[in-house]
């Protein structure tokens, strides 16, 4: 039985679907959803146990029911007021502490979060767990108890790599398509109890979690750099606009 732990983040739907009529307040980060779908596909042919690990407010629990309905075996939510305001460093610390208490062969992450987008967490986790992070994985070809063969696609180079487990890995893609969740599976998933762990359950050094443990903070904000001068504005005079654009481009043409 191979233990796969998927680190997921739940984000506000309004960040992903900016203008649309959204239905659920929270949703799974599209990069993590993609990773979950890939991992569930693996489960069809390889005997494995999939655990979703998430750090967040307790109210996001509802969004995690979807993971269970899709086929994950266990869901663990790390939720504590102390975790709030965490930057990447503090997030990695809490996730790593939780992972150290679990059996894992592979830790899978989505490439990055849509509301943060640093893509640093998988590497930070790998450093804390003292293993390598394989990024930009497009496919897991072979999965065994002690090793895995993956295909990595970075820019235009495709590599087939064999790694000894455990490792951390990230897929490269995201999906904006809502998965089709069988309603009966959803009904069953609603009965499942998500395991909620607080700071005290994790043997944490409270100096390293949440805002207290963060190394950085946003201290100010500025308006973006707008042009200082008023733009030259043309309206409805199609011929004049085309002629102007030609003048500007011609000067710089190849």
């Amino acid at each position: 039985m191979i233990n796969i732990i998927l680190c997921v983040k739940v984000v506000l739907s309004s960040i992903v679907y900016k203008n649309n009529n959204i239905v659920d307040k929270y949703m799974l980060n599209p990069f993590d959803l993609y990773a979950l779908e890939q991992v569930l596909e693996i489960k069809r042919t390889t005997e494995c146990k999939i655990t979703c690990l998430c750090m967040g407010k307790e109210e996001i629990k509802e969004a995690l029911v979807q993971c269970k309905a899709m086929g994950a075996d266990d869901i663990i939510l790390l939720s504590d007021k102390k975790f709030a305001g965490a930057d990447t460093y503090a997030t990695v610390y809490v996730l790593a502490q939780a992972l150290k208490n679990l059996d894992y062969d592979i830790v899978v992450c989505g490439k990055q979060a849509v509301d943060g987008e640093t893509g640093q967490v998988p590497y930070g986790l790998a450093a804390r767990l003292n293993c390598i992070c394989m990024g930009a994985i497009s496919e897991i070809e072979v999965l065994e108890k002690n090793r895995v063969i993956v295909t990595q696609q970075k820019d235009n180079i495709k590599r087939k790599l064999a790694c000894k487990l455990p490792i951390v890995m990230t897929y490269d893609d995201c999906t904006l398509k809502s998965p089709t969740i069988n309603l009966m599976a959803l009904k069953r998933a609603e009965k499942y109890q998500v395991t909620i762990l607080k700071a005290q359950d994790l043997n944490l050094d409270t100096d390293k979690v949440g805002q207290q443990g963060s190394k950085t903070e946003v201290y100010s904000s500025t308006k973006p750099e707008y042009r200082k001068a008023e733009p030259i504005l043309l309206q409805d005079e199609m011929e004049e606009m085309i002629s102007k654009i030609y003048d500007i481009l011609r000067i710089r043409k190849g």
């Binding site: 001068a229 030259i232 606009m241």
Partner: peptide
């Protein structure tokens, strides 16, 4: 329009 040097409304 705040960033542009030329704005063509069309």
């Amino acid at each position: 329009c705040k960033y542009a040097d030329y704005v063509f409304i069309a």
